[in-house]
Simulated assay, not measured.
Amino acid sequence: MRWLILFLLTPIAALAQDLQGNDTASNWRVTHYETYGVWNSICDEREEYGALKQRCYIRRAEVFSLRPKFGAQFIFITPAPDGVEIEFGIEPGTLFRPSGFRIDGKDGAVWRTRRPGCLTGLSCTFDGVGADEIVEAMLKGEAYRFEFRDRHGQAQDLTWPLQEFSAAWADFQQQAQARSLLTSQ
């Protein structure tokens, strides 16, 4: 998990998997990188078995605890066959409060999840209508709020501002469409 977080926090893909799946220096070349507040809109490419592979994504990663009790959380928004896929990377052993995984607006929560996997540090991925609802909430909301106990038992309260998300979203859509990576948006 630590190597994944290092990759997520690096503007160029210096640490990533090679074509055999090994955690080695990668041959991904960044072709687009813009920062909008805490949000990054990134595209990169590499040759895979004689063909050009391109990808674009929005990313936010936060290391909330350094060594020796390392802890981090991230979100990736990537193109998917039915729009976009949203993946939250949460440390195994994390326990969220029942209403502690949400997007807040001026008048309270505009979106929240109560999925057991999301609230307990297991798989937390949304696609289709679920991903569309999250993007809509991100465009309207003011901030993500994450209130939880990390895998070391420490209370955490993270806030990810959404004021710059709409600009990151527009950039991501433009870049992904220019590379024919988005099929419906």
Rank of each mutant, 00 (worst) to 15 (best):
E48P: 01
C43P: 01
E62I: 05
P92F: 06
R67I: 14
F96M: 07
R2N: 13
C118H: 04
G117V: 08
R46W: 06
Q163A: 14
R59Q: 14
Q173N: 09
R102V: 14
P68Y: 09
F74I: 02
W160P: 00
G37S: 08
Y57T: 08
F148H: 08
G105N: 11
L139D: 12
L4A: 10
D132W: 06
Q154T: 14
A143Q: 12
G128N: 04
M1Q: 11
R149L: 15
D82S: 07
F70Q: 05
L66Q: 13
E45M: 08
A170G: 10
L182G: 01
R67G: 14
G71I: 05
L158D: 14
S180R: 12
L181E: 05
R60H: 15
A143P: 01
F7A: 13
T24Q: 15
R112L: 15
G37V: 06
A72G: 11
F74M: 08
R115Y: 00
E164T: 08
L119Q: 08
G105T: 11
G93W: 06
R55V: 08
M1T: 08
P79T: 00
D150A: 08
E48L: 13
F64K: 00
I58G: 02
A72W: 03
E147Y: 07
E133T: 07
I86N: 00
V30H: 06
G117P: 04
F165I: 03
F146R: 02
C118A: 07
K69R: 11
V63R: 10
E147N: 10
I42M: 12
E133I: 04
G130K: 00
E142C: 06
E87C: 01
F7G: 14
A13D: 15
D150Y: 04
A155I: 13
Y36C: 09
W111N: 06
N40A: 13
D127V: 11
T120I: 10
R46E: 10
G105V: 07
Q54Y: 05
Y49E: 13
R46P: 00
D107T: 15
S26F: 04
A137I: 06
Q54T: 15
V84I: 03
N40P: 09
S26D: 09
I42E: 14
